[in-house]
């Protein structure tokens, strides 16, 4: 099955073995001439199965048996992420929320509480807080600045919308009994930025990703937040970062 989508301003044709990925991406359907095509074969699905099994083992959980069409969804996004650096765009692992037209991106290792914290922002700010993407947004870095794009791949709670918002700040989140936040340097944030960015298989695309991260780092502020699950954590992080 094939269809055309527009994701992060790029027109992408997805050619798949199973139908599920097209349902998953349906809000991004578009009619136009594709900038590029991604098509999956069985080997791509098998690769995702191996990869998720390795992650499960690393996280010390029993290896999940995942459906072929779910694994294909992952394969499709991987293929898109491989192409995106060509268009000054890369995939970043984090929860992105926009308030008053500016995007705040929370990042941390899986299971730390990124989504929990952005949920507190929604509780605090109501409809002023718009979830851009709760898991894997795309970030474009060009002459227009740093822009975060919603994508269909927005986490298990499917939180996100098809919008583009300028990025204001990246916040590295840690669990803590009490809430505290401080601005950190680009150098202090750098390792985490590399760890949370998708690393392409293609070395040209990886080199481009690294230069995009460096340029992005010049345009935004970085923060380190220690937080608990009380709404006061959101009040502290929002009020401090908005400046």
């Amino acid at each position: 099955m094939k269809n055309i989508y527009k994701i992060a301003d790029k027109v992408i044709e997805i050619v798949s073995l199973h139908d599920k990925v097209h349902d998953y991406c349906k809000e991004y359907r578009f009619d136009g001439v594709p900038d590029f095509t991604v098509s999956t074969v069985q080997a791509d699905i098998d690769y995702e199965r191996e990869k998720t099994a390795k992650t499960d083992i690393a996280q010390r959980i029993s290896v999940r048996h995942l459906a072929e069409d779910y694994l294909e969804e992952l394969a499709v996004y991987r293929k898109i992420a491989e192409q995106m650096p060509k268009y000054d765009t890369f995939l970043f692992h984090g929860s992105a929320v926009a308030v008053d037209g500016e995007c705040y991106l929370f990042t941390a290792k899986s299971g730390t509480g990124k989504s929990t914290h952005t949920r507190l922002w929604r509780a605090l700010l109501g409809s002023r807080a718009v979830m851009v993407n709760d898991d894997k947004p795309l970030i474009r870095v060009n002459d227009n600045g740093v822009t975060v794009f919603g994508t269909p791949y927005n986490g298990k709670h499917r939180l996100g919308v098809n919008i583009a918002v300028p990025l204001k700040a990246v916040c590295i989140l840690e669990r803590s009994a009490d809430n505290h936040i401080r601005q950190i340097t680009k150098a202090e944030a750098y390792t985490m930025l590399l760890q949370q960015s998708y690393r392409p298989h293609n070395s040209t695309a990886l080199a481009k990703t690294l230069t995009l991260i460096d340029t992005m780092a010049q345009h935004i502020t970085f923060w380190r937040l220690g937080c608990n699950m009380d709404i006061s954590a959101a009040k502290l992080s929002y009020e401090t970062m908005k400046g």
């Binding site: 750098y190 390792t191 590399l194 690393r199 990886l206």
Partner: peptide, 27 residues
Amino acid sequence: KNFLVHKSGKETIVVPTGNAEFSGIVK
């Protein structure tokens, strides 16, 4: 060939592509 050398400020960083078994970063 699956490892890229990147310089950021005073640091030298080695970053593996998605092909490498190693998925960390060397600084």
